[in-house]
Design a protein around this nucleic acid. Structure first.
Lengths: 180, 180
DNA sequence: AAGGTCATGTAAGCGGTTACATGATTGC
DNA sequence: GCAATCATGTAACCGCTTACATGACCTT
């Protein structure tokens, strides 16, 4: 799975510009995928020259023209190939957990800060996804399922980190019972 | 956070060879970090030429020599710099959730397969981590916390995916109540 | 006047993977 | 005899990010 595949998937739903694709990458796909403009525009160009998508310039009032891309038949086939390819393992890379792993070399207050900031971030993402579920109850059932799994995952993440923080604080007060 | 930082962290605990580092990357760090030999060996060489680590050849019986690397004072400082740098966002990239998002273009039995395989993978990882917690109760408390958060996260992931699968199956039997 | 949104693109470089190359030893 | 484990390394390539470059319009 790479940006090509995901862009093709998005264009399978409806024609989009690069800028609109970036918006979707941030939300609602941001929880499990992202790519920058530096990836999106060259990928669109490549996809077009390969004949998987076609470009159409759309003139707009009071804002710049945009290039709207549409899936071709070859593109639909290419996307189907991706959907038929073997599933790839999820990738999870966490600076927080790495630092936690090396926690012996840093103060507990620092650890608590890190945990707190990630908890906040997780809650922010959770709220976004929950709002979306409320705002758009008539999604395709697959996307609905995806959203639901995403919500469950991120809610669990917030909870796991909160429990981690509690454990850390319990330990801290145990090691200095006089309380600072 | 990159391979340099993590390798420096591991060597902060004890001297290691590239091969041993790879082993640790797979387990127990595999849940939230990984890197291949193609990264590890060049990184070690770079780290050595920068003076952050020092190499020592160790002759072994009945197996090849190995190069064991040890942190220098400069390396300890470099690692401290990393631990003092701002925390980076977690990265989660999921082929499964992408495919779920595009589920409208594929059969539900395929979705069920994918979910099942990821559930199995999550459970496999969960078991590994739980075994480690039992096998090594005397870890540094930070690593212990890291392990515990990891276990909570992956257990929640397995649960979220299982519930997703249930929802999918409920929907499937609802849309064909005669049952195939 | 400044900053945000809409909009598209390029260039340098980084960090990483995959595949290749080599080779001894151990267990089935 | 074959596969797995132990052990180190290189080369080609990929995918992506960051920073740069440009510019109109809209709101404060």
């Amino acid at each position: 799975m790479n940006s090509q595949d995901v862009i093709l998937g998005l264009l399978h739903k409806r024609p989009l510009s690069g800028y609109e694709i970036k918006g979707l990458f941030e939300f609602p796909l941001g929880f499990f995928f992202d790519a920058s403009f530096g990836t999106i525009y060259p990928t669109l160009a490549k996809l077009e020259s390969s004949g998987f998508i076609s470009k159409e310039s759309v003139v707009q009032d009071n804002r710049p023209n945009k290039n709207v891309y549409r899936l071709t038949e070859a593109g639909r086939n290419r996307f189907r190939e991706y959907m038929n390819s073997p599933l790839e393992q999820d990738l999870y890379r966490s600076d927080l957990l790495v630092r936690l792993f090396f926690a012996e070399f840093v103060g507990t207050d620092r650890l608590a800060e890190w945990l707190t900031s990630e908890i906040e971030e997780a809650k922010r993402q959770l709220k976004q996804l929950e709002d979306l579920r409320i705002a758009e109850p008539d999604m395709p059932s697959g996307s609905w399922l995806c959203l639901q799994v995403g919500i469950d995952l991120i809610r669990a993440k917030a909870k796991a980190l909160e429990e981690g923080l509690k454990r850390l604080q319990a330990e801290r007060s145990a090691s200095s019972p006089d309380g600072n």
